[in-house]
């Protein structure tokens, strides 16, 4: 799916996957921070946005 994202010109990094056990609080915060940082760095999305006037 990420590949198809990239293929139509969206940033692949907007779709991220992780496998985290409920006992892995540390991993969860790390992944969440990392995701947030990547998306922030990419900035707001300008494609595939439904505009309602």
């Amino acid at each position: 799916m990420a590949n198809l994202f990239e293929h139509i010109g969206m940033e692949k990094e907007r779709l991220q996957f992780s496998w985290i056990s409920s006992a892995e609080a540390g991993k969860f915060t790390n992944v969440a921070t990392e995701v947030a940082n990547t998306i922030e760095a990419l900035g707001p999305i300008d494609k595939f946005v439904k505009k309602t006037d």
């Binding site: 990239e6 293929h7 139509i8 010109g9 969206m10 940033e11 494609k47």
Partner: peptide, 17 residues
């Protein structure tokens, strides 16, 4: 044909689709 699209930059891909 797929490779030709893959070689485009992201904005070109988007405008293509």
């Amino acid at each position: 044909d797929v490779k030709a699209v893959e070689a485009m930059d992201k904005d070109a891909k988007w405008s293509y689709f």
